[in-house]
Design a protein around this nucleic acid. Structure first.
Length: 471
DNA sequence: TTTTGAGTTGTTCGA
DNA sequence: GTCGAACAACTCAAA
């Protein structure tokens, strides 16, 4: 009475708390499959940094499946039926994904398979609450975080992680898999060397990062998460994006560790719910990645300027905290959350570049690039998103630097040419005298750029621009 | 239907 | 140096 099940791995590259895999393993033999879908994603193909991570993570997953993971590249709507025709598969399972193109594709496949008598089942693996479960009293979706958060907490508690399958019985077949290298996920340019130093993709690495965070950082999370020179955030974003662990595992692990003081895990869990909220918004408003959530911003006077954009991308704006952040991104595939907000505010408000330009760059450079989080966060900063910041809330990068990186430790790490500058001028070197700078081995526009915009003037220009679209 | 309270992460100005 | 007010009005959510 055992049956054979195809397990389609997507953003759930783990064995623990994997409901689809657990179901398959419990009902018989298993064929684990990963497909690089080059057909349906269109402009939301993963970026170069993401693909580097994916390559490593697939390698790790394949190892934990004892080399039984099959790799394909192409259209899942053809590949999966093709596999079925060559085997005795009776069932196809997966954990749900939520990007609009994934939802469309998966629905089509489900209907196709059911038409030919193949059982097809999707599971909850990646979100604590399914987006369709939570609505306001009138049935419409939330647009403000706080009421959404309250609703989450009063709704049923998230499911518990499912136990790891004791043993997986692999179906014997003659299918041929592409070698991992032929998925061509590794970037063609050789800029990812440093990634290996900072990150360990895969379920094991994810578990390690989680336990480090819980043991060392969650207690001071509320204070330290804003200080970029301190390792105070969870650093779980990429692991969560690829599903090397589930939010359920994280949610309950946080509770266990801080059981003595339940209050203590609230600030962190709140951040997990922000992730839920981004997915919720993307589910209910599928155009979030492309269109202003607030249509009034369709008339915003962005002033497209490739030179400004490039200076921002390369970390050559002359504003140290901005340059440090953008170089951190380029070198490590990551940027501290506080700094993400500062560089985003700077691009959108001081440089008046469209938030979609910034989102596109992050999409390509971030190892944790995630369509829901990236779109919701950029729109939030721009002011066009849900629950957006008031338009007059424009970060002053010098003040932000002084406040959250008072000794310039973070800046100096990524802008070593400013290394000998005292704290007083580390965030605003252009305000020091040329003599003073020379004493500290800095020549503006030679060893470090002078600012590409005047902060005060550009702030006023942004306020005027926002004023324009009020009517 | 109307009303009421509230909304992630800030900055500047002037007393 | 510190502190409170102003920065606009609007939209959302729930009573």
């Amino acid at each position: 009475m055992t049956s054979t099940t195809l397990v389609w791995f997507r953003q759930d590259l783990r064995l623990r708390d994997n409901p689809a895999l657990a179901h398959a393993a419990a009902s018989g033999s298993v064929i684990p499959v990963y497909i690089v879908d080059d057909t349906h994603a269109q402009q939301w193909q993963p970026g170069s940094a993401s693909n580097w991570w994916l390559h490593q993570s697939l390698c790790a997953l394949n190892e934990s499946l004892n080399g039984n993971l099959l790799f394909f590249k192409g259209d899942p709507l053809q590949i999966i039926p093709d596999i079925i025709s060559q085997t005795q598969i009776e069932q196809v399972v997966w954990n749900r994904c939520y990007e609009p193109w994934q939802i469309r594709r998966d629905k089509t496949l489900k209907a196709q398979l059911q038409n030919v008598g193949i059982q097809c089942q999707s599971f909850n693996g990646n979100l604590l609450w399914e987006p369709w479960q939570l609505t306001k009293q009138d049935g419409s979706p939330y647009k403000v975080f706080t009421p959404f958060y309250k609703k989450c907490l009063q709704h049923q508690t998230p499911r518990f992680p499912v136990p790891k399958s004791e043993s997986i019985q692999y179906y014997h077949h003659t299918l041929s898999s592409l070698p991992l290298a032929e998925l061509a996920l590794m970037p063609s340019i050789n800029w990812y060397q440093a990634f290996t130093k900072h990150w360990r993709p895969g379920e094991e690495g994810a578990g390690f990062i989680l336990s480090q965070f819980l043991n060392n950082n969650i207690a001071d999370y509320a204070n330290n998460r804003n200080i970029p020179s301190v390792n105070g955030t969870s650093c779980l974003s990429a692991h969560l994006h690829f599903g090397e662990l589930s939010p359920h595992q994280v949610w309950y692990a946080a509770e266990q560790i801080t059981a003595a003081d339940v209050e203590q895990c609230e600030p962190f869990r709140r951040q997990l719910v922000w992730r839920e909220f981004s997915y919720y918004l993307l589910y209910h408003f599928p155009s979030f990645p492309e269109k202003n959530f607030n249509a009034r911003f369709d008339h915003f006077p962005w002033s497209k300027d490739d030179n400004l954009l490039i200076a921002w991308q390369q970390g050559k704006t002359g504003i140290p905290i901005i340059d440090a952040g953008m170089r951190e991104l380029w070198q490590t595939g990551y940027m501290h959350n506080r700094v993400r907000m500062i560089v985003a505010s700077f691009l959108v408000k001081n440089l008046l570049q469209d938030w979609r330009e910034g989102a596109a760059w992050f999409w390509d450079c971030l190892l944790d690039a995630d369509l829901a989080n990236n779109s919701a966060s950029w729109q939030w900063v721009a002011g066009s998103g849900a629950d957006a910041a008031p338009y007059f809330r424009i970060f002053n990068p010098v003040l932000q630097g002084k406040k959250f990186d008072p000794d310039g430790e973070y800046v100096k790490r990524f802008c070593p040419e400013l290394g000998s500058l005292p704290s007083k001028y580390i965030h605003n070197p252009w305000e020091a005298s040329a003599d003073f700078l020379q004493q500290h081995h800095i020549l503006l526009d030679q060893t470090y750029p002078s600012p590409i915009v005047d902060l005060k003037q550009s702030r006023q220009r942004a306020l005027d621009a926002f004023h324009q679209i009020k009517q």
